[in-house]
Each structure stands twice: as structure tokens, then as C-alpha cells.
Design a protein around this nucleic acid. Structure first.
Lengths: 246, 246
DNA sequence: ATGACAATTATGTATATACATATTGAAACG
DNA sequence: CGTTTCAATATGTATATACATAATTGTCAT
């Protein structure tokens, strides 16, 4: 553990997280196929030169996540693929709208440059404070509001975004052209529209909405957190995937 | 001295699982609203008369699951509904429920063998009529309904499913062990609960729900169509992926 | 052989302890 | 009055240790 690469939010950096990610990597990459026996705790103990408790915590977590199966006296094994990572195809909103044959338009509602607070850092997965850009905007399909976008951009990672107004062009396409992203995490949930959202989207308060949040990293650096709020009746996400991970 | 007379050996009888489920219960039931400060580790230590490590493990797990937020020096808090989330993965509901330290239970509501009608065929993607199985069931987290499942199984593709009752075991895990699937398509949307759903999930009619529908194929044959309905306020889907899809 | 039983082994859970680190709140300072 | 400094505090992570429990292996008597 000489070099602390990847010092980002989710807690890479601790030893047991490293053990965790090492093993996950081997499993997800297929290097350790289903049925493969994982080294015993005491073997990992010497490999990482740490205590059994640390190894145990990591393995227990993997078992809880369903990646491995543990049996007393026999050891731990890679589980048969039961839960697959979903690959979502989340298109550019413009493309979605135009696919419906409607006129796409984007309108910025708000733009604010400020220092990150604790909430921001939690959303972005940042450990230290820094400068960021907050942008809120509305995507239209024809005359109707199609989605509300609320976005945080980490200016430490993308300083040149600070000079952009994002008045007519959404931050998403702009970022895609400039920042090669390496990883993303989506959170998808349903929510009742509050006053603000209802007002922006021109729906009734309390109406069900689909919320998609995306965090994006580029080379271990958190780049942006964006939240899309869609009125429920107008939108269905479609994700298609195959089980062949590797 | 607190709570839980009828622990009845819960899913696990370990102490840290009990702490976990006690707290999950209080949060999910609303007894501890968002923002509520959870007792400090050392307070729980005396309440349960155990070591700090044990309490710490339970709280860390809750933080990982997204139910609470922990801050040094300030303590742990129930997360705001905004960024809240019981993390839910696409597949194994049991694993997600147990990650919250709650007892998982499945209960079949209805089971019906019949010939497919036009709607069924549309959902399954079948061209010709045939025999199918309709199963409706409820997934519980502790005492609380967690998700409603409505499923069609194509008996032409999986005839042996016709002999199963699916009374105590959900069809999902059963199918996974038997049918190697080659492709799946998800549709995700938000929806207001209608009378039937509200009744089954014990929520108010009109409350927002997250709906996940999945169609699965095995070697070109439609196998099953399943619809999961989750009460919105406590569940979030998480998907993580990298752009290098191949 | 075979079945019963003990020994071995790996994991499961819990303890006490230690030090690191982030945040708060108050005291000290310019 | 604002800023800096510092101690107190709660969590974060790791250690060594202990005993419990489940499953496999080896041994022995029948």
C-alpha cells in the first residue's frame, strides 16, 4: 500500500476495501470463475499482511453482496452468477425526444458557482472541499417539459466548465465531448413531485416522478452528479442486457 | 431492555443483526424520521451491553445500505429522502432485504395456470397461444411489504414450472437455478399506486411506486415476464457500469 | 466395510484496545 | 470582529484474542 491511487469517495483507500475490490475484480473479470475457491482467510492474511478480522470483514461483505458463498471448514467460493449487473442504456435526452418526433429544446433555469458543502461532496463523492458549478435546467419535448435536470460539476476535475454559461446547451453533451468518463453509477427511484418540481414540470404536486441520478468518474476523479426528474406518465426507461459478463 | 420480545431467532440471532434490524425497523416505520439523530455508538453500546465494534459494524452496514448518514463528531442521522436509499439491485430481493438486517419472507398471493391471451403474448413476446403460469406474490422485509411481484411463466419453455407451487419460494430464484437465460430487457418507470397495489403494499392509493418489468429469454425462447412494484419512499435501484461495453 | 465418534479446520461472532481523522465549539489572538 | 488554534469528541480502521459452530477428515471398534 505504497501509493494511494484512487482516493475517492466510496472509501477506496482502506485495506479491507482494497481486498474487497481486488477480489471483486478477479471475479467480475472472470479470472476466478464460478466455483473457484477463494484463498482461505489465513492465506489472505499473509498475502496482505493484516489481521484475520480485516480479511473476514471483506469476505463477509462479498458474501452479503452475493458474489461469493462461504462454507465452514470448506472455505469460500465464487457463486454461480445469480445477480447480474445491469447495463442501462441511458440515451441523451435530445435523442430520446427527437426519436419521439418532437422538437427538442433546453432552457437553463439557474446557474451558480460556489464552494462545495458537505451535501455536495456526498453526492459527488469528494473528500475535500473545492469549487463547483450548480446548474439547473429544463428539457422540453415540443411545448411540454420533458425532464428537469439538476447538476453538480466538480470544477477541480473540469475547470473549463466554470467559463460556460450552459444557457442553451445542456451540460451533459458538453461534458461528454470534453471529459472521457470511465465509470458511472445510476440511482433510479420513484418520487412524489414536490412544489418546486411540480411547478417546473407543470404537473400536480404529489404526482409520481421517475428520478435518475448519475455519478460519473473520470480516471478516479468524480466529475459530475446529475439528477433527472421525469414525469411518470411520459417516460419509461429501457435497459437491455445479457448475462455474459466476460 | 429495549424492544424485541418476539425476535424468534430472526434471520440470524447474532447481536449485530439485531441492532441492525431494530434500527432499520425504526427508520422504515417512520418512528425515526429523516434527520433524526441515531444514538451515539457508545450509547448503543450500553443499551445493548456490547462492545463498540459490534455497534460500529451494524451502523456501518446501515450507512452502506444508504439508510443513515454518519458524520464524525456529529453522529449518525437518518438520511433525507432526497439522497436516501435502501440500495436495491435488480436481482435478488432476498439479499437486499437481508443486507438491511431484516427478515426476508415471501408469500404467494395467487397462482393460476391458463392459456395465454393476447395481453400475455404481448408481454412475453410470444406469437402463438400456449399454456402459461401466472403467479403473484409479496416480498417482505421484516413485517413490511417490500415488493409486489406479478409474473408470467411460459410453460412451453419451462414445463416443469407447472408442477411448482411457489408458495414459499419466489419463482425468480427457482428459475435462475434451472433456466440459463441469455438475454433480458428491463423497463423501469414510476407509477401511482392503484387500489390493488396500495392494498397489497400497505401504502396509500396514489402514492408513487417504482415499477421494474423484466422479460427474459433463453435461447430465443421467451421464458418469463415479471413486474416488481416497490413503494417509492424506501427503495432505490442502483446500477453501475463502465463505458467499455465491447 | 461401515458406522460412530473424535480431531481438525475454517468460518462466525464478539471482546478489548489502539491510533487516525474529521468536525465541532470554544478559547486565544490579531 | 473575524480568524486561527486547539482540545474534545465521534466515527473509521486496524490489531490481537477468544470462544462458538459447522463441516470435513481420520480413526477405531464392531
Amino acid at each position: 500500500m505504497s501509493t494511494a491511487e484512487a482516493v475517492d469517495a466510496d472509501s477506496v483507500g482502506s485495506l479491507h476495501q482494497r481486498i474487497l475490490s481486488d477480489i471483486s475484480e478477479k471475479i467480475l473479470s472472470g479470472a476466478w470463475a464460478p466455483g473457484h475457491r477463494i484463498p482461505f482467510e489465513h492465506e489472505l492474511t499473509t498475502e496482505y499482511s493484516c489481521s484475520r478480522m480485516t480479511v473476514n470483514k471483506a469476505l463477509s461483505q462479498l458474501a452479503k453482496a452475493g458474489l461469493i458463498e462461504r462454507r465452514r471448514r470448506s472455505g469460500s467460493f465464487v457463486r454461480q452468477p445469480q445477480s447480474q449487473a445491469a447495463v442501462l442504456e441511458l440515451h441523451d435526452i435530445r435523442i430520446e425526444v427527437e426519436a419521439l418526433g418532437l422538437l427538442y429544446r433546453y432552457k437553463r433555469l439557474e446557474r451558480l458557482k460556489r464552494r462545495s458543502n458537505a451535501d455536495d461532496r456526498a453526492l459527488l463523492g469528494l473528500s475535500a472541499a473545492g469549487s463547483l458549478l450548480w446548474v439547473e435546467g429544463l428539457h422540453f419535448a415540443g411545448e411540454r417539459p420533458f425532464a428537469l435536470e439538476q447538476r453538480l460539476i466538480n470544477l477541480s476535475a473540469v475547470p473549463e466548465a466554470g467559463d460556460e454559461e450552459f444557457r442553451e446547451i445542456a451540460a451533459g453533451p458538453w461534458l461528454i465531448g470534453r471529459v472521457p468518463w470511465s465509470e458511472a453509477e445510476h440511482r433510479i427511484r420513484a418520487m412524489a413531485a414536490d412544489e418546486t418540481i411540480a411547478d417546473a414540470l407543470d404537473i400536480d404536486p404529489g404526482a409520481p416522478c421517475l428520478v435518475v441520478e448519475r455519478r460519473t468518474w473520470s480516471a478516479e476523479h468524480p466529475v459530475t452528479h446529475v439528477r433527472f426528474v421525469y414525469p411518470a406518465e411520459s417516460h419509461t426507461l429501457v435497459a437491455r442486457f445479457t448475462p455474459s459478463q466476460g
